[in-house]
């Protein structure tokens, strides 16, 4: 419940004060929490390597199909939004450029869009049948 309240409050604050800083703050949090969840799943899948080759191949095989190739696009979107936004706030803070944060935001959005276009182009074949053996 605390978690849903947190998101509700963040949404309310963003709604009351609709500016770039607040919206990116909300997205930074949401993507951050999402990436922590992903990190746990990633650790679960990869840690099968501790039990050896066969269990690793089995668990890795379960997450390599066209559906997961689509999920990967969402994952990469979360990663690059969080990354570019993190770099933006670091640059603004460390170099005293807070007044230019909106300009940096639009630069961030251009880079983000470019990366996502490349990501979709690269992931597209993986979402078709035939890319993965036996699928």
């Amino acid at each position: 419940m605390a978690f849903t309240n947190m998101l509700k409050n963040a949404y309310r604050d963003t709604n009351l004060n609709k500016n770039i800083g607040n919206i990116t703050y909300l997205f930074h949090r949401i993507t951050g929490i999402g990436l922590v969840v992903y990190l746990i799943l990633h650790t679960y899948v990869l840690s099968s390597a501790i039990s050896g080759k066969d269990s690793f191949d089995e668990r890795m095989g379960a997450v390599q199909n066209p559906l997961f190739a689509f999920f990967e696009i969402l994952l990469i979107a979360g990663v690059f939004f969080h990354m570019l936004n993190g770099v933006r706030i670091s640059i603004c803070d460390f170099f005293g450029l807070s007044r230019a944060h909106k300009l940096f935001f639009w630069i961030e959005m251009i880079l983000f869009t470019a990366i996502m276009v490349i990501t979709i182009i690269l992931q597209w074949p993986k979402m078709q049948s035939g890319f993965y053996p036996g699928m």
């Binding site: 080759k53 890795m60 990469i76 770099v87 993965y132």
Partner: peptide, 30 residues
């Protein structure tokens, strides 16, 4: 902030090598 800036570099490389540059077949142990 510091770990974030390191991760920006790490993740960029990691995603390139393991997602983008992987163009055929299954990723398995070998």
């Amino acid at each position: 902030r510091l770990s974030g800036l390191f991760l920006a570099f790490f993740l960029f490389t990691h995603i390139n090598v393991h997602h983008f540059l992987h163009r055929e077949g299954l990723i398995d142990f070998a």
